[in-house]
């Protein structure tokens, strides 16, 4: 039983949280900038800490300012709700989606990290969106019929 538990929950028998340390000090994986294309090399060097790391403080601050600007745009859209009419909700959803993607891609490092993590998170997002969209549709349809 003990052996079975060890096989199930322990990696190399090191315990739950004391996972094995990195054994090989391989050199850096190939450089990945947040934006592709050689023509952006200078900009990339600026925002990614000279290309030595994934991204540097300057890049993160730029993303932070971008997020603040999008939030301001959302509130501006709120003030213009009557003028925007039917465009109001789509505009707000698009702005929220842009913020969502910026945080997930850059602050949560999915843009730089192994793609498997993106697949794991995206699977939860897709299943959640489909299930709850269906739920909303069914619920609203039932309300309309009543």
């Amino acid at each position: 039983m003990k052996k079975l538990l060890k096989k199930l929950f322990y990696h190399d028998g090191n315990g739950w949280w004391n996972l094995p340390k990195n054994m090989s000090l391989k050199p850096n994986p190939p450089y990945e900038g947040p934006i592709g294309g050689p023509w952006l090399l200078r900009l990339i060097n600026f925002i990614t800490y000279g290309g030595k790391s994934h991204a540097g403080p300057r890049f993160y601050i730029i993303v932070g300012v971008f997020l603040a600007i999008i939030t301001a745009l959302e509130v501006w859209a709120f003030e213009l709700e009557s003028q925007l009419a039917i465009l109001y909700i789509p505009i707000l959803l698009i702005l929220a989606l842009i913020k969502f993607i910026a945080v997930v891609a850059f602050y949560m490092h999915l843009r730089f990290d192994n793609r498997f993590f993106s697949y794991v998170f995206a699977s939860g997002m897709v299943v959640g969106t489909v299930v709850f969209s269906l739920l909303l549709f069914i619920s609203e349809s039932a309300y309309m019929i009543r």
Binding site: H11, P20, N22, M23, N28, P29, S53, H54, F117
Partner: peptide, 16 residues
């Protein structure tokens, strides 16, 4: 620089 990427080269069955 190597430390920055230690977590990415894990000695696990998935490599993650």
């Amino acid at each position: 620089t190597v430390n920055n990427h230690q977590d990415e080269i894990e000695n696990t069955s998935t490599g993650l």
